[in-house]
């Protein structure tokens, strides 16, 4: 167990190192002054420039520059945004939790709807209900997420008027950001009507979650169904039937566990899609998440923001992937202990 943890931590640290190296190189590859790309501050005179060059060790070799860059990242000095002039750490700290929050709800939706429906379809494979579930999930899986989000806005916000068009919460509520997750922040904040604020926040959450969650749920249904069908054809299920076990017994004791094991790594692959979808949907709903923030950065040619944004998003994706893979390794007795960690 400890060896597995060590292996995965080494893998994690090395991957992060490569990513930081990439983001450091970006400062050189982006157009414009390296110093400005790295710090986000445009020096006003030679004195200030020299001070910045010394601060970022730009007068020394690349390796020392990179080492210094790493230290700066560790200390929380991520540079400043061109456009707002605020420290990037603060901006990412506000935007990233919003994306994580919405992705989490979409994932929960996939787990609570996708898993049971997928199991049901797998057991009733090739029946009418299975075919219906399968085609509905295939259709929702192939719908482009931005189109789906637009249709949802058109229908629920503009036609029916049951859900707000954009944003995270009504401007009437002033919620100080503590954790970055709106629902938790509402509960932590004082001097507001918690019930009203929660209901408003949930209304705002509804459409973006639905847009992202539909596609993740569809993927979940398809993965689960396939996995259950595969397991049902295994000889040990036939052997269990020959032992006279009843259908529910076989399902609970043999099908469920064996079908769930391959779902986990496949869901890890879906994480990338999920976060990408979340970032697309954010721009449509003006959700103050990292996707929206990155798009703004691209429009403004905010190179330091792009550099840090890329690092933040990829760190998030890689941490989740490695975590899921590690869990799967610990749960699956079939995987060998000496197998190497992989992303």
């Amino acid at each position: 167990m400890i060896r597995i943890l060590v292996r995965y931590s080494v893998l994690f640290v090395l991957t992060l190192l490569v990513l930081t190296a990439l983001s450091f190189v970006l400062a050189y590859l982006f157009p414009g002054d390296v110093l400005v790309n790295l710090s986000g501050i445009t020096p006003e005179n030679e004195v200030q420039r020299d001070a910045l060059v010394r601060q970022y060790r730009l007068d020394q070799s690349y390796l020392i520059q990179f080492w210094h860059y790493l230290q700066q990242l560790m200390n929380g000095n991520w540079g400043y945004s061109f456009t707002s002039g605020l420290p990037l750490r603060e901006e990412v700290g506000l935007a990233l939790p919003a994306t994580i929050e919405i992705s989490t709800y979409a994932m929960l939706m996939a787990l609570f709807i996708g898993l049971p429906v997928g199991y049901y379809a797998g057991i009733r494979s090739y029946s009418l209900s299975d075919r219906t579930i399968n085609s509905v999930s295939l259709i929702s899986y192939s719908v482009p997420v931005f189109w789906l989000a637009l249709v949802l806005i058109l229908f629920f916000s503009l036609e029916l008027g049951v859900a707000p068009l954009s944003g995270r919460i009504s401007l009437m509520f002033d919620i100080p950001s503590v954790t970055g997750f709106i629902l938790i922040d509402i509960l932590l904040s004082e001097h507001i009507d918690h019930g009203l604020a929660l209901r408003d926040a949930l209304h705002h959450l509804l459409l973006p979650t639905l847009a992202i969650g539909t596609i993740t749920t569809a993927a979940m249904i398809r993965i689960t169904r396939r996995s259950v069908i595969d397991v049902l054809q295994k000889p040990y299920i036939a052997a269990a039937r020959a032992r006279g076990l009843s259908r529910p017994q076989i399902f609970v004791r043999h099908v469920m566990r064996n079908a769930s094991l391959p779902i986990l790594p496949l869901m890890a692959i879906q994480i990338t899609t999920l976060i990408t979808n979340a970032m697309i949907v954010e721009t449509l709903f003006s959700w103050p998440g990292i996707g929206n923030w990155l798009i703004q950065a691209i429009y403004q040619r905010d190179y330091p923001a792009l550099r840090i944004g890329m690092l933040a998003v990829s760190t998030l994706v890689i941490s989740l992937t490695i975590l899921v893979d590690m869990f799967n390794r610990m749960l699956d007795p079939g995987r060998e202990r000496f197998e190497r960690g992989a992303i």
Binding site: P235, Y236, A240
Partner: peptide
């Protein structure tokens, strides 16, 4: 059954 390894649930 023939092939005992296949006839046993690998996860139990």
């Amino acid at each position: 059954f023939q092939n005992p390894l296949g006839a046993m649930d690998p996860s139990a």
